[in-house]
Amino acid sequence: MRPRVVAAVVAPLLWNNWLLPRLALNRRGRTAAGALAATGYAFAFGGRPNWLSGRGIQVGLGCAAVVGAGFAAASAIPAVRGSLAGAGDRAADVSTLEWIAVHIPLGTVYTEELVFRATLDPLLDKEFGSVAGTVLGGAAFGLWHIHPARAAGDGVVATVAFTGSAGMVFGTLRRRTGSATAPALLHCALNTGGALLARHS
């Protein structure tokens, strides 16, 4: 593996699991720092999000609509709603509006999609091919969540496995549309739906 690709893999993992936690920022500070770091990372490693892709927007909105319908159906069933809400409130320090309008789209979706789908995945595809790139990109995305899982008291192995699988889905959407917009819209719909259920169930 070329040194540039090694650096592209290692840098975000060190940032999210080691450096960012040591800055001891509040939620707003973490959101701002994450977005700035992601932007710098994309510039450094040649990220190409292609945010305005028509196909990316179309596919992403379709995926988000399916997810939204699923959450709406789940919220109408008390047992399912209670189960989905069991994870609890992950952002009790901010209002619902701020959580879903700022921290999810900017601190999570923009940051992660710019780092992984727009920048790292294309580098891995070029180095290893799209199949291996999908797996390796998903694995890196899973490992990105080690510290957040520990901080939330979640099982690290389960979190890495789940988010790694999600990363492969998001990566596949990026590869099929040529844009990070499709996975970003799906990612935003999933996180927003989960946040609303956690707050209003």
Rank of each mutant, 00 (worst) to 15 (best):
P3G: 12
R4G: 09
V5A: 12
A7V: 07
V9N: 05
N16S: 15
N17Y: 10
L19K: 06
L20V: 05
L20D: 06
P21M: 09
R22M: 12
L23W: 11
L25H: 07
G29H: 09
T31K: 02
Y41C: 09
A42Q: 09
F43G: 12
F45M: 03
R48H: 12
R48G: 07
N50K: 08
W51R: 06
L52H: 10
Q58V: 15
V59N: 05
G60H: 05
C63Y: 10
A65M: 10
A65N: 10
V66A: 10
V66C: 02
V67Y: 00
V67K: 00
G68V: 11
G68S: 12
G70K: 07
S75K: 12
A76R: 13
I77H: 03
I77W: 04
P78M: 04
A79T: 13
S83I: 13
A85M: 04
D89M: 10
T96L: 15
V102S: 08
P105G: 03
G107V: 02
Y110E: 04
R117I: 02
T119G: 01
D121H: 15
L123F: 00
L124S: 06
K126F: 03
E127D: 14
G129E: 03
V131D: 04
V131H: 07
G133N: 04
V135G: 02
G138I: 00
A139W: 00
G142H: 06
L143S: 05
W144C: 11
P148M: 03
R150C: 12
A152Q: 15
G153K: 02
T159W: 04
V160F: 03
V169L: 14
F170W: 14
F170L: 15
T172V: 14
R174C: 01
R174W: 01
T177Q: 05
T177W: 00
G178L: 07
S179R: 01
A180C: 02
T181I: 04
A182G: 05
P183V: 00
H187V: 00
C188P: 06
A189L: 05
L190A: 10
N191K: 07
A195Q: 11
H200G: 11
